[in-house]
C-alpha cells in the first residue's frame, strides 16, 4: 500500500515502547502490531487521535504517502 505508517519512527523519537503505547492508548498489542507492520486496512479517527495525543504529534507525522514505482 502506498500509505505508510511511521508509528515505529515516532515511537523511537519519543523513546516509547510498544507495551507502553498500548497501555496509554488502550489498544491491544496485537492491534498496534498490525498497525506498525502496515497490515492494517484502515485506521479510525478515534485511534489516530489517541495515538497523536500520546505521542504528541500530528497525523501527518504518522502517515506518509509514497508513490510505488513500477519497473
Amino acid at each position: 500500500m502506498p500509505v505508510i505508517i511511521n508509528l515505529d519512527v515516532m515511537m523511537a523519537k519519543r523513546k516509547m515502547s510498544l507495551n507502553e503505547l498500548s497501555e496509554k492508548v488502550g489498544i491491544t498489542l496485537s492491534n498496534l502490531s498490525i498497525l506498525k507492520t502496515g497490515k492494517a486496512k484502515a485506521i479510525r479517527f478515534s485511534t489516530l487521535e489517541l495515538i497523536c495525543e500520546v505521542l504528541e504529534c500530528q497525523p501527518g507525522d504518522l502517515l506518509e504517502y509514497r508513490k510505488i514505482l513500477n519497473n
Partner: peptide, 8 residues
C-alpha cells in the same frame, strides 16, 4: 470481514 478485522 477481513477489512473490518484490520481496521484499528
Amino acid at each position: 470481514q477481513t477489512e473490518n478485522q484490520y481496521t484499528i
